[in-house]
Design a protein around this nucleic acid. Structure first.
Length: 577
RNA sequence: CGGGGCGUAGCGCAGUCUGGUAGCGCAUCACACUGGGGGUGUGGUGGUCGCAGGUUCAAAUCCUGCCGUCCCGACCA
């Protein structure tokens, strides 16, 4: 392609609405433009990258034994009512009605539709196992879209679903998909971790996320450098920390105006780790009035909402009781709460429950207890892991202390069990003619988010540094054509023709621009191999070659340039190329 | 949903407090010079100042409502 024939609207300055590197550079480089909140148009350069990632995803999925289909974006409400998710999905699913008042949603995911497809088409164990995927536009009405492509409302996702008669077959597919996603991310040249994750609204089984490590990531992953253990912070098990503090006598002290652990611990000259905090949340309602429960964690620990919401008896989604509800149920305000004498179900984090003597609110405004002992002063308490793990906590596999890194979730694989096949009445006949409910796996990969993730990891102060596998072009010929330099023009054109004929994807900058502009744009766009053709070199029969990543810079004799450059190839991309 | 910021030419911004003929840089168009890291000069194009209503002789500027957009927060006692 010649630059003169391609719309590449580069920007010298970053638009004010862009914050993170990927958003800024993709807009400045002319890859994407925003249409509305969380929705982007793919310009020619951006689309080439997107298609290349798609191509890699397809190649790896073929190896993993998946088959491609394409399912609709518009989905009927009835299917979602069958699975029970029409009511539980919440406002992130965009719903609308057609002219006949029939209800629909815009696909946020595809379990219902694929399960419906399966039950209509597959009837015998002979057709199992099977694994369908498609690459399709998804829409999720995110509460706060941000960071450009990283958290968009409309995005491109590869989602796949496998169906199995038994666990062994399922485990094989799950493991194949685990390998497949690792292979894809390696081909995208990304530094990533596969981590244990919380499946959230998708199911109740295990799940694994694939995180690209980047400081701008929205998730925190906890991992052990000493082993393979890695988990999303939402999921990472927090160890029980032992307490060898002597048991103390109970006392009640005035704490006028003190509402926070920090204030109370400073006043009492005790560390926050000798206090507990008591959070009041809504429990599953038993009909009459608000039903509440108390969650207790050590004062220097944070409640993990993701863990708390999975507790039996806690209302989903997790909601905290209002000040008024607390006042009326307990008779005290937030800031003076504690487990002593509390007539609510109490769930204590393991570490809090292991404390021998602690400080807590007295359930009476402006008063706290000190020297509280669970057995002596509280009694019946449920114990569960409900705190967030911290750096230096022992990893769940016992291999060593945890470290934290931020990550961008680009892939997530789930064990769905029979959640959908059962609720939607799917069965196939087994070898003996009996009806069996198949089990499912589900495998998502954010194609458009992966574009952002690559840029987050691969850029410098001048622009993007695309990995060869997905760069919009392999080689960038920068022709330093002054107006009178027809020799440069001719040499660059010949090089372009020969490389293209040799199968290299070449972008020829044939614009009538000054060298500085061309170099700056080339750095911004980030094509891996650059060849500069100028009068200076031509006089000596050479062109200049440089890699965008800075690892190589040298002169090439004009007559060996094609042979040298033809070695660099990237992945073929279907459709547009 | 709550709080805050912003909305003036394609992009980045000034002007708003204190009402009086709409500006700057970049981009863009023409011409000339220049030609190895965003060059220079001259002359142009381009804006119902987010929308609607109000106050006023007069509104980008003051008031009201709405819309858009970005950031923070959404109960961690």
């Amino acid at each position: 392609m010649r630059s003169s024939q391609l719309l590449i609207p580069t920007l010298r300055e970053a638009p004010t609405d862009a914050e993170v590197a990927s958003h800024i550079l993709l807009v400045r480089g002319g890859f994407i433009r925003r249409l509305t909140t969380g929705a982007y148009t793919w310009l020619p350069l951006g689309l080439r990258v997107l298609k290349r990632i798609e191509a890699i995803v397809r190649e790896e999925l073929v190896i993993a034994g998946a088959q491609e289909v394409l399912m609709p974006v518009v989905q009927p409400a009835e299917l979602w009512r069958e699975s029970g998710r029409w009511d539980t999905m919440g406002p992130e699913m965009l719903r609308f009605t057609d002219r006949h008042e029939r209800e629909y949603c815009l696909s946020p995911t595809q379990e219902e539709v694929v399960t419906d497809l399966f039950r209509r088409v597959v009837t015998s164990y002979r057709q199992l196992p099977c694994n369908f995927y498609h690459i399709q536009t998804k829409f999720r009405d995110e509460i706060r879209p941000r960071f450009g492509l990283m958290r968009a409302r409309e995005f491109l996702m590869k989602d796949g679903y496998s169906f199995h008669l038994d666990d062994a077959s399922f485990e094989a597919a799950y493991s194949a998909m685990h390998d497949c996603y690792s292979a894809i991310l390696r081909r995208l040249a990304l530094d990533f971790r596969a981590v244990e994750a919380d499946p959230g609204a998708m199911g109740d089984g295990d799940s694994h996320e694939f995180h690209v490590l980047a400081g701008s990531g929205e998730d925190v992953i906890a991992f052990s450098p000493a082993s393979d253990y890695a988990a999303n912070l939402e999921k990472a098990e927090a160890p029980v920390l032992a307490d060898d503090h002597p048991v103390e006598p109970l006392a009640t002290v005035p704490t006028r105006g003190m509402k926070t652990i920090a204030e109370v611990s400073e006043h009492l000259r005790l560390p926050a780790s000798r206090c507990v905090k008591t959070l009041i949340v809504h429990a599953d309602s038993d009909g009459e009035g608000p039903s509440l429960a108390a969650l207790v964690v050590r004062g220097d620990h944070e409640l993990s909402e993701a863990k708390a919401v999975r507790l039996q008896g806690i209302r989903r989604p997790l909601t905290f009781a209002t000040d008024a509800e607390i006042k009326s149920a307990i008779g005290a305000s937030p800031g003076s709460l504690g487990p002593v004498g509390l007539s609510l179900p109490i769930i204590a984090d393991g570490t809090a429950a292991a404390m021998t003597s602690f400080v807590c609110g007295a359930n009476e405004d402006d008063r706290h207890h000190v020297g509280v002992n669970w057995e002596r002063n509280v009694g019946n308490v449920r114990v569960a892991d409900i705190r967030e793990a911290l750096p230096d906590d022992m990893a769940a596999d016992g291999s060593g202390p945890l470290e934290f890194r931020r990550g961008i979730e680009v892939g997530h694989i789930f064990k769905l069990g029979d959640k959908y096949t059962r609720s939607m009445g799917v069965s196939v006949q087994d070898r003996d003619g009996r009806s069996v409910t198949p089990i499912m796996g589900c495998y998502g990969f954010g194609v458009s988010r992966a574009v952002a993730a690559v840029v987050e990891q691969c850029h410098d102060e001048r622009g993007i540094v695309w990995p060869e596998s997905i760069a919009p072009f392999t080689t960038h010929i920068v022709a330093l054509t002054g107006k009178r330099s027809t020799a440069v023009e001719a040499a660059a054109a010949r090089l372009y023709e020969e490389l293209t004929a040799a199968g290299v994807d070449v972008l020829l900058d044939d614009r009538d621009e000054r060298p500085g502009v061309k170099f700056a744009d080339a750095d911004l766009i980030g094509i891996p191999h650059r060849v500069t053709v100028g009068e200076r070199g031509l006089k000596n029969g050479i062109v200049e070659y440089a890699r965008r990543d800075g690892t190589e810079s040298r002169e090439l004799a004009l007559d060996e340039a094609v042979a040298h450059l033809a070695r660099a190839r990237n992945a073929p991309a279907a459709g547009i190329l």
